[in-house]
Design a protein around this nucleic acid. Structure first.
Lengths: 344, 344
DNA sequence: CCCCGAGCAGAAAACGCTTTCTTGTTGACC
DNA sequence: GGTCAACAAGAAAGCGTTTTCTGCTCGGGG
């Protein structure tokens, strides 16, 4: 009848009693300390096995000052981009014996720093994913969150590496591709206003416009999901553009679906591009031209940076920059003769 | 110069010293215990604020015997179904102040029980999502994992509620729908062999076949992702079926993409159905007919069941059963005249 | 034969918090 | 004015580990 007095669970004390040794010896055996007599060690191991003893990680964490857990804060777990990052992070961390705790801020930027703080205190490190908070706030709380790795955001705070995707370059590549196909009237379906990655895209487009003054680029309000694209059909048609750069693949899919409902052909009438190259992009009809971001790898790299920070506090990791790769598929094609605004 | 001797972080002791009171009093104040003189409480609060004191959750967890964290074990974080469950679970748990720790078994069923045990020990409860392990193994470890909630799996072990989706009924509904459209030759693109939900679908199809002996139903090997569907085009065409039930929406999308490449029209030549109604299903071209599973709600309900278990150990929650809802869209249509096997 | 170092295991402190137990003070009631 | 209840705050005991410190025993060398 194995039973622990208080908690109901069996602890190190039970094993110690059963093996007729002290707590300390049990601990030593469980941690592979070789300064224990082999015969006693065997007895302890036998007792532990018989009682199905499993060390309590909370007690262990308190004594060791580490939890073998990292946290990740994302603005929206429904977004495939963040899901992919989470997946890459989780997989990489698991290989080193770390688990991941997730915190979803639901795009409420005011909650972000509290959430991040709470998560950080339970973990050995934190990944802050595309935070929506202001630069000032980020810089202020960053030091208290270290070891910290940023994704798609940078900060002036010291010792905080960032992994950023060069959305500006990516969007320029896409625009160039459309121009090469003969499109001279483009439109950009923007993303969430607070998103740093959206700003990078806008900067990229400014650079593009400067280099191609003859191309007309219309800016349209937007968001980051299907509906944004689906509901933007009217605005897109009114713009008269023949080449549409959607904020991401989801928006592009929503847009294509809306265009299809109106009886318009992609890319015959209008060319559409996405961004991210989520797995679905290859299987839309027509397959989506997009800029591929090695997003799972980003999560993986985030772990590697964080691991370096956790292991030796002073590895001032530099962070790195990822170049999207243009992925030309069937949703873009040669421009028709110049169109004028079309309704419904 | 605020600095804690050992850990570098400031603890309850620092606040106590600064406020000129004992540790106990600080703890009482921080936990809203009203048996403290208001004036002293104010002093403590001021000290805590000035030092930016934040209680260490690990110490707290050890003392209280709870972590305010729950775990979820999924077979594959890349699967949109599990992502949606995770999202619903995380959101619901967050509203009650709980966080979630994720564990991905990467479809390695032998790792599952170890992973589950480790996760459970760090948490107050566990959600086991479509576990791939055997019934025997599940029943054996279930008691040690309680409070435990199962998703898409049941067990004879006591006090373990399950949330299951009636995939059998769903697949029958879809098949009926195709028959109503005049299809008499169907094919089922199966999912992963170890998946319990796949078995439920197969049982549903058996029931369907019994009720409709005149309908021919071909079984095809499969999987759960895009590629499965894309690579199944040949097998599908050889089967001569005009109505295809894909294991899930991903497989259906892969299949539609493959059919499109072969120049076949959906639903003109072949009708295709999915399962799950992931957000993408509405935006494929043609929009996908599928069986909608309230998957995010499933995650939410999982939390509610788990919460009941955590709060009063003896609330023997019954678990519940979810009925998929047929969602007819544009990927299914009237059958053409009977086709014979077509190649290439 | 005695002393000292090495080696091994138990005792105890530490990790940071909560909570019970204890003590000292105050106020009320007889 | 004395006794006792009520109460507020400090002391200390946990929670389950790890790890340092201490002490004991044994073997070897002087």
């Amino acid at each position: 009848m194995v039973r622990k007095s208080a908690s109901g669970r069996i602890g190190i004390a039970d094993v110690a009693v059963k093996a007729g040794v002290s707590h300390a010896t049990v601990s030593r055996v469980m941690n592979g300390n070789f300064t224990v007599d082999p015969e006693i060690a065997a007895r302890v191991r036998a007792a532990a096995a018989e009682l199905k003893y499993q060390p309590n990680p909370v007690g262990r964490s308190l004594a060791l000052g580490k939890t073998d857990t990292i946290g990740i804060v994302v603005p929206d777990l429904a977004n495939p981009t963040f899901q992919a990052i989470l997946r890459g992070l989780s997989r990489a961390a698991a290989q080193d014996g770390y688990r991941v705790l997730i915190a979803d801020s639901f795009e409420v930027s005011s909650e972000e720093s509290i959430l991040a703080g709470e998560a950080r205190r339970r973990c050995d490190g934190l990944v802050l994913c595309a935070p929506r908070m202001s630069d000032a706030e980020l810089e202020e709380i960053a030091p208290s969150l270290r070891p910290l790795v940023l994704i798609n955001r940078t900060t002036a705070a010291a010792g905080v590496p960032s992994l950023v995707v060069d959305y500006g370059q990516g969007v320029q590549d896409i625009a160039e591709h459309l121009v090469d196909l003969g499109h001279s009237r483009l439109a950009f379906l923007a993303g969430p206003p607070r998103s740093a990655s959206n700003n990078l895209r806008l900067q990229g487009l400014e650079a593009f416009k400067a280099a191609h003054p003859q191309v007309q680029v219309t800016m349209l309000e937007g968001g980051s999901d299907f509906n944004t694209g689906h509901e933007a059909v009217d605005a897109v048609l009114e713009s008269g553009a023949t080449g549409i750069l959607a904020f991401n693949d989801l928006v592009a899919m929503g847009l294509m679906s809306g265009l299809h409902e109106r009886g318009l052909d992609v890319p015959g009438d209008i060319s559409v591009t996405g961004f991210d190259d989520i797995p679905f992009a290859k299987y839309t009809t027509p397959a989506l031209t997009t800029a591929a971001v090695p997003i799972t790898e980003l999560g993986e790299q985030a772990w590697h940076q964080l691991r370096a920070l956790i292991r030796n506090e002073e590895s001032d990791a530099p962070g790195s920059r990822y170049q999207p790769r243009l992925e030309v598929r069937a949703s873009t094609g040669p421009a028709k003769a110049a169109r004028t605004a079309v309704h419904g």
